[in-house]
Write a protein that binds this DNA or RNA. Structure first.
Lengths: 338, 338
DNA sequence: TTGTACGCGTTATCAT
DNA sequence: ATGATAACGCGTACAA
């Protein structure tokens, strides 16, 4: 790389642009930063010079002089190689990156080694980062909450206990209730649910939504089995449901992956979907469409969540006051499973 | 955040440490950068002062003064929200992050908007980044190859055509041949393959490996169907294989996701795995174990790839010469499908 | 081995 | 509206 053969010019600086345009560095700086008080003719000349030398601002110098970091950090819990296997994480990142692309902030990632958390702490608190985003699966991990006292932080998902932190989430309970209603309106009366872990907010909220809808319709809400959001656990839960003695003609599953698991046991028992038992999932991830018949499910706008998280973080950094909790609307995707 | 109530002390600087330790800033700088020529007693005193004031170096200042960027960029093609849905991507990132955690480089991510590729180009070439990593799915995308002339770049996966770029990959062909041999050694003789797209290196190499093993054993290598690495395409290919008239008692599938697809049609036809037809996959991802019976497959050490990519990039940045292509060894994971 | 002093590329303050 | 010029926090010749 780097063909440094004699004539390779150095990366252009403000200084060079200024010289070429016949103005001071201050003026160039103003143009670059869109300060309104610049004469339009001069500005034009400067812009031309910028193009001519192919100038790009040096971020380090900029950050140093302005005394503020120009990067935000995405914190990823190490524990979980699961976090990475989870499409959820990937999509959030995507949303975050997409939003930040239009700002002056750069996105950097740290995987929070629990081996030496002080390192991460030091990095975040060392003044090198303008703010941080925390995404830990569906979970309500808040081990970083206290850092909110020092730098702006935004979390993905509702925290477990009380917490003064900023976060963005979907209204899991309302969405789950809506999904359940689809089952109810299709005429099913023996509706079960395969719920998620009860130590995670989405796990909790989604059963509650199901319960609410069932109560609202005056239906029996005793058919509940729990899984851990994995495909295998969904299959097991379905098996328990079928073996319980109680009839089941519809099931709301707390995520698509478990729904896919439920599919396998339903189908190995010769039960038809949706004729014999209708299924509604949650998330609208790749499992929803890779399954046959394709799954009716709640669309979880994960990329949007990422975007919103970034947006809120930037607002926080720039001192605008924003709501602590913001909910992204979900929608129901009707496919073939109900 | 930021309780700026009166007494909040400013982020500590070299200067402050120097004052406290009673030495010059230069000395502190040396200690921080592990310059050997410092008197151990003084160094100790300095280190103590550093701890005392809780000093963290300012990365921007450091980068500015040393005239070299301290961050590397991970480039992710935007096109594909698929890239993000792909566990492959996530794992590479993880490996990269893990490696970089022990260096002084910071990892930042850009999603390469094809809308305005100049922006990405400018960012990379503006001197703000020490090097870049490119990961684009299983593909051999090399639209960034030319940047190698200006900054160190390392790619994931073998490029399609000739290319002078650095990359790390697994030996897909050898691994595929090895996987096929497992089928052969189990006594199968009518061995088919569900191959990947023939415009991607892994797609190409993996069929070739299968062919080589078949030839080596003197077996018929005409049973080939193609998919696109998705579950659905694997199912379709399996269906074609079964409908071809030729008997099939074993199949090497170019990735686990397609293997999962093949499973569904095998099982819906009442064929037993592995009794009636044995299956071997490739990747050893979550699909391999979420399927029943669990899949025998080639372990693709993706995290290791990420680590290696980062390692090579850092070497490149620091001027060490390294091999252009480095292969990570794979291994066979024997489970229940053969 | 340690300190002095200059420079890195910008922004920001203060004149003009 | 524009231009000097002093920071910003640190690395690094060079001198001592």
């Amino acid at each position: 790389m780097k063909q440094d053969t004699s004539g390779s010019r150095p990366t252009p600086t403000l200084e060079m642009v200024a010289a070429l345009a016949g103005v001071s560095r201050a003026t160039v700086s103003r143009v670059v930063n869109d300060v309104p008080s610049v004469d339009e003719d001069i500005a034009a000349k400067v812009r031309q010079a910028i193009l001519a030398v192919n100038y790009t601002p040096n971020r380090a110098a900029r950050s140093l002089a302005s005394r503020r970091p120009n990067s935000v950090t995405l914190i990823v819990p190490e524990s979980t190689s699961k976090v990475f296997a989870d499409p959820f994480f990937a999509s959030v990142v995507q949303g975050v990156a997409l939003y930040l692309a239009d700002t002056d902030y750069t996105l950097n990632m740290v995987i929070a080694s629990e081996a030496k958390p002080e390192k991460t702490r030091a990095f975040l608190l060392g003044g090198n980062v303008a703010g941080a985003l925390v995404v830990s699966h569906h979970a309500g991990d808040r081990s970083w909450t206290h850092l909110s006292d020092y730098i702006p932080m935004v979390f993905a998902g509702r925290p477990l206990g009380e917490s003064a932190s900023y976060y963005v989430d979907v209204d899991n309970e309302a969405a789950a209730a809506g999904a359940t209603r689809v089952l109810i309106e299709s005429g099913r009366t023996n509706i079960a649910t395969i719920a998620g872990p009860q130590d995670m907010p989405p796990g909790i909220d989604r059963v509650n939504g199901w319960r609410a809808a069932m109560a609202e319709a005056g239906l029996d809400d005793s058919r509940v089995e729990y899984g851990d959001f994995t495909l295998a656990s969904g299959a097991k839960a379905m098996r328990r449901l079928l073996g319980s003695g109680k009839p089941v003609d519809g099931v709301f599953v707390a995520n698509d992956q478990m729904a896919a698991g439920a599919y396998t046991v339903l189908q190995e028992r010769g039960l038809r979907i949706p004729e014999d038992v209708a299924v509604v999932g949650f998330d609208d991830d790749s499992f929803a469409t890779s399954v046959n018949p394709q799954l009716t499910t709640v669309h979880h706008p994960i990329i949007e969540m990422g975007k919103k998280m970034a947006e809120i973080l930037v607002d926080l950094i720039e001192g605008k006051d924003t709501a602590r909790v913001t909910q992204i609307p979900t929608s129901l995707v009707i496919r073939e499973s109900v």
